[in-house]
């Protein structure tokens, strides 16, 4: 395909993906807004005042980055896992497979859809947080970069999950049993400085910790981990998952017999 036809194919997939989650915004955008609002009220307002400051800022301000990122992670993942699994389940993935759109364009299209949802929901939640807290933007470019990289990484995770999924149960197992625990243990609600050395070391194996900290740095200028290392780790994970996804697509795993 030429550059312009490739671009049209990519844009078609992305537009379709964005319209999909926009059309069902009551299921996609609204719930995370409600959940995080509750977190802000309960942990920030009601309990936060008893906890006192963390990392030198009010507790509510400390948890904003983590809560925003949690929404970004779950939404980018959920978007791709459900969209790709449905396309597989209803067989309309075949519309793409019979078309000359190359595999990397198909992957880029789905991942961009996930990034779009992650960034949209993240931004809405960030806006809501302004009602309860006073997050100041330490670095806008870094904040945006972390938004996009985190969304891309978890969109890729959702894609791989969807490739292997054979039932609707299979697309909820990883979010429930892997993503949620990792997110909660990824320093959303606390600084790992509070942990004993053993748990601190163990936390370093959690990829989400790096993103939460990079994002916290973008918003507050605070991080448990050097930002350069956090970004590099994220990029390494993205590269690895991209290669895995392309390999799965070219072998037709889960979509061809």
């Amino acid at each position: 395909m030429s550059v312009s036809t490739t671009w049209i194919a990519y844009r078609t997939i992305v537009t379709k993906e964005i319209l999909r989650f926009a059309r069902i915004w009551m299921q996609t955008v609204l719930p995370p807004v409600i959940t995080t609002t509750l977190y802000f009220i309960i942990f920030g307002r009601l309990i936060g005042s008893r906890i006192g400051p963390m990392g030198g800022v009010d507790y509510i301000n400390y948890i904003v980055p983590g809560l925003v990122l949690m929404a970004v992670i779950t939404n980018s993942y959920a978007n791709v896992v459900s969209s790709f699994y449905q396309a597989k389940f209803q067989h309309h993935i075949e519309e793409l497979l019979v078309s000359p759109a190359p595999n990397w364009v198909i992957l880029a299209g789905f991942i961009s859809g996930g990034v779009a949802r992650g960034v949209t929901v993240g931004s809405v939640v960030l806006a809501v947080s302004c009602v309860f807290a006073e997050p100041h933007l330490h670095s806008i470019p870094l904040t945006l970069l972390v938004f996009v990289l985190t969304s891309a990484l978890f969109a890729l995770g959702g894609f791989i999950n969807a490739v292997y999924a054979n039932s609707f149960d299979d697309i909820t197992i990883i979010p429930n049993f892997v993503l949620t625990p990792l997110t909660y243990l990824g320093g959303v609600f606390y600084s790992i400085d509070l942990l004993s050395p053993f748990w601190q070391q163990l936390s370093l194996f959690n990829p989400i910790l790096y993103m939460v900290n990079a994002f916290r740095y973008g918003l507050l200028g605070l991080s448990d981990i050097p930002v350069g290392i956090a970004l590099a780790m994220t990029l390494i994970f993205i590269t690895a998952l991209t290669l895995v996804s392309l390999r799965l697509l070219s072998k037709g795993v889960g979509v061809k017999t």
Binding site: S2, T5, T12, Q86, Q90, H91, H92, E94, S99, P100
Partner: peptide
Amino acid sequence: NFNPFEPIGEILVNQAGYHG
């Protein structure tokens, strides 16, 4: 093998889109 919820005009236009 189409998306049953997609309007049929869109189905055609998107298929054309995948072809550039």
